[in-house]
Amino acid sequence: MINRGYGRTLLTPNGMEFRTFVSRRSVPWSEIARIEKRRHQGRSSEWWDVCAVRVRGRALTVPGVFTSRRRDADFEEKLAVIREYWTRAVVG
């Protein structure tokens, strides 16, 4: 199993570019309705990731933004930066 935290995301003025071991994908900001922090829970653990919820279609997990710690400042900072880019693109 490959850890969901592997991969990276490049934020550009036009959108997000996802890169993982097996794929590459670009999603324009105009296709994204919101950015969500999601909590997942297993038998003995929990983890958080970030999803880009598209206007039409399913949510896409953002590669490289993942944590298993409750209060992870790096994770929260990444989330804030992604939301800032999205807000700038949507608002103007």
Rank of each mutant, 00 (worst) to 15 (best):
R19K: 15
S45E: 12
M16T: 04
F75W: 04
V22W: 01
F21R: 05
W86I: 01
G57P: 06
F66S: 00
R19M: 14
E84A: 15
C51M: 13
S68D: 06
F18A: 09
V65L: 09
R4S: 10
T87A: 12
A89G: 03
R69Q: 13
V62N: 01
E84I: 05
H40D: 02
W86C: 02
T61V: 13
E31P: 03
T12E: 09
I32M: 04
V62L: 04
I82D: 01
G7M: 00
V50T: 03
I32W: 00
Y85N: 04
R43Q: 13
V90N: 13
G7N: 01
Y85S: 05
E31V: 02
R54G: 10
E76N: 14
F75C: 02
R88T: 10
L10M: 09
I2E: 04
S26D: 10
A33Y: 02
W86F: 09
I2S: 03
S44K: 08
Y85D: 03
R34T: 14
E17V: 07
Y85F: 12
G5M: 02
E31W: 07
R69C: 09
V55H: 08
R4V: 09
D74E: 15
G5S: 04
D74A: 15
A73Q: 12
E46M: 05
F75Q: 05
D74S: 14
N14A: 15
L10K: 14
V22G: 06
A80E: 15
R70W: 02
R34W: 04
G64W: 05
T67F: 08
V91T: 14
W47L: 04
F21K: 09
R39G: 06
G15T: 03
R4T: 08
